[in-house]
Amino acid sequence: MAHGTESRQAAVRRLGRGLPLRRVLDVTRPKAWADLDEDVRQAVRHGAPAPSHGWLTGVHGPGWRGAWDRAADRMREEPAEARLALALCDPDGRIRQAALPYAAGRPEVLPLVAVRAADWVRPVRARALALLREALPAASHETLAVTAPVILRLGGRLRGGDAVELLDGLLRDGPPARVTALLLGCRDAATRRAALGVALDRKLYDGLGLALVAAGDHDPLVQERAASAAVAAGEPDATAPVLLGSRFGRVRAAGVTALRGAGRHAEAEPYLHDRSGRPRACARWVVRQGGGDPVALYRAACAAPDPPARAPLGLGECGTRSADAPLLRELTGHPEGPVRASAVAGLRLLDAVEPARMKALLDDPEPAVVREARRALRPWSV
């Protein structure tokens, strides 16, 4: 915690030295922008030297000195990125409001404009929303991918809903390329989820496109929703190979389910031995739907001279203790370590653990076998 606080304070100091935002914070993280806003205000309130904002118009005092400053403002150049960012985060609402016009046409600070769109000061909020209305439709995909996450993150604030509605309208009524850019090019998972929801509502993707989204995304919710929509599209010949080729278990499980819709039940059999539990469970269901017996297939695989590594685990997931525990106990002595580990896991699932056998396996040269043996012995270690 202390390290995080010090890092955030250092970011404010670097900004004060004039470093650009991309060298001060990770601009792809929406929390970083909200943290910067908070950190600048806290730094000023707790005694840090206040940034100089003499370049701003509309915040000068009365009399001849204020008139002189206002005249000088008209001769000044646009503020540097760091100075503008500090003004947009200032504790004084008048400074934040006066800084906003300088943010027009400055995409590098548009996320801070999004922060100000949830400001507690109404004039600041209104001006920031007006700027967003002008800037977002013309923003590049890169700028939108950085700004949209900030808008969505701050949408939970009391005054953040207007900016979220603005973004939602832009995605629902704007070019499909904007939705695609966020869905495929934004690092923020919450933003990709929102973009996927819009894409599904607008029917922007066919089954193959949805399968590609599911297979390539790292977020479980995006994977789940896109994969389910791909299966529901009813194009198994196109979607199943993509889904089955994913490295994510929940996506492969959707691919196995798609095989059932295509009537290709036998093709699910290899996934009885998948490395993830969900595809194995889906494969057992598809095999049964096609009239097959997954338990018999597991027993035959376990009895083979070279069984698939996860065949004993699959048998433990759907077999019976009386019929299958002897075979699994025999496989705890198999020459291949992954098979032994799988057999131990299968015995645990069948509630057929023999503590003496498991204790002997604690000296097994295969780390996976030792881990499974320890897990199996937990009920006896109390």
Rank of each mutant, 00 (worst) to 15 (best):
V12A: 08
D217V: 07
L313D: 12
D39V: 12
L129H: 06
E77P: 11
P294S: 08
G185Q: 12
A345C: 12
R193Q: 14
R250Y: 01
H141R: 11
A118Y: 04
D363N: 13
R127D: 11
L19N: 08
A99S: 14
L297F: 00
H218W: 13
T191F: 07
A85G: 12
L272Q: 08
C186G: 09
A130W: 08
D26N: 14
A98M: 09
P30D: 01
P30F: 01
A356C: 05
A117P: 01
L56A: 08
V242R: 03
A43R: 02
A341S: 14
L86H: 02
A232L: 11
A118M: 04
E354R: 15
A214Y: 03
A356D: 15
A72N: 11
R348N: 10
L167H: 06
R264T: 06
A148M: 09
L204P: 05
A233C: 05
A87G: 11
R172S: 00
A268F: 06
G197D: 13
G319A: 00
A238H: 12
A226F: 07
P30W: 02
A341Q: 11
A2D: 11
G66T: 01
D35Y: 03
T320F: 08
D92I: 02
G63T: 09
E267T: 04
D351W: 10
L21H: 04
A376F: 00
